[in-house]
Simulated scan of single mutants.
Amino acid sequence: MSIRRNAAAAAIGIAALLTAPLLTTTGAAAQTKAFDLTPDQAGRVHAETVDAAVAAVSPDFNFVKDGVFTVGVSVGDPPLNTYASDAKTVVGTDADLASLVAEALGRKVEFVPVAWADWPLGLVSGRFDAVISNVTVTEERKERFDFSSYRQDVLGAYVALNSPIQSIKEPKDIAGLKVIVGAGTNQEKIVVEWDRQNVAAGLKPAEFLYFDDNGASQLALTSGRADVEINPNSRLAYAAAVGGKTRPVGIINGGWPLTAEIAITTRKGSGLADALTLAINALIANGKYRAALERWNLGAEAIEQSRTNPPGLPKV
């Protein structure tokens, strides 16, 4: 799911986002707080230097800038990476993680915005030290890059706030439902396979609905034209927070039936990946990591341990 970037989310107005409610639900109850998209990011979590991580950086690795951790990011997909109200400061979950890792390495963070399709060339050519932009670990990518995992690659199942649906976690749960899913995506592949299994078992088939933009899919869901949307959890969690009209009913790994992870991406054999893995694990241990995810309503995507070059999704 993270191979494609959906820029439509960037169309949400900055002014509205500054006061957007962060929605958490228990049944039909909701509590809200505001997102912070101001450029100063007063609420951003900070970390102390992790000596073990600093020491683990290969002496052969040359950072782009002295005292700086330079990170390539694809901007325009909140809550992962987007622009603050000044239209130039990068904020979001991945930006927070990059800031934490930089501090763990005893460095400042600097972002280099890059189109999603261009990050591999930018990384190999040395424009930045690493990419932190929702990159899924795959076996094919591991042939060219090293990875330090930092988040689960997960899909979210979201319904209208007043929907009777309470749980979607396995194939039978979508039987007979109208399901919104992205065309030509990994999530479509998963739900189509679920539907195939259901029909083979004598259950009602699902009906799949496709929309060109996120606003249309949200309207279909909240108006009752669709029963559930199954798409990248980060985007749906953000939409639920901003609109306050939907709620989560399930988390599905993006590699189903396998497990997929999101990772910081570095040049193959550059000698930086192990240091980044150590930094992330220190942040997990001291609670800074989870606090950064919770700040953007993505606690459900947390991992228990970072790994260097974990098993990736198989080659197609």
Rank of each mutant, 00 (worst) to 15 (best):
R107S: 01
R107D: 02
R107A: 01
R107C: 00
K108Q: 15
V109C: 03
V109F: 07
E110Y: 14
F111N: 03
F111M: 00
F111C: 00
V112W: 09
P113V: 12
P113G: 04
P113N: 08
A115L: 09
W116F: 14
W116T: 13
W116N: 08
W116I: 12
D118V: 06
D118P: 04
D118G: 02
W119A: 06
W119E: 04
P120Q: 12
P120V: 02
L121N: 12
S125C: 03
G126V: 15
R127Y: 07
F128T: 11
F128V: 13
F128P: 09
F128N: 10
A130T: 15
I132Q: 13
I132S: 08
I132W: 10
N134Y: 11
V135E: 08
T136R: 15
T136E: 11
T136Y: 01
V137H: 06
V137Q: 06
T138M: 04
E139W: 14
E139R: 15
E140A: 13
E140D: 12
R141T: 01
R141Y: 02
R141G: 14
K142M: 05
K142E: 02
E143I: 01
E143K: 15
R144H: 13
R144G: 03
R144M: 08
R144E: 04
F145N: 08
D146H: 05
D146Q: 08
F147E: 03
F147D: 02
F147L: 05
F147S: 03
S148G: 14
S149G: 04
S149D: 04
R151N: 12
Q152N: 13
Q152M: 06
D153Y: 07
D153C: 06
D153W: 06
D153V: 04
D153G: 09
V154N: 06
V154M: 02
L155S: 01
L155N: 08
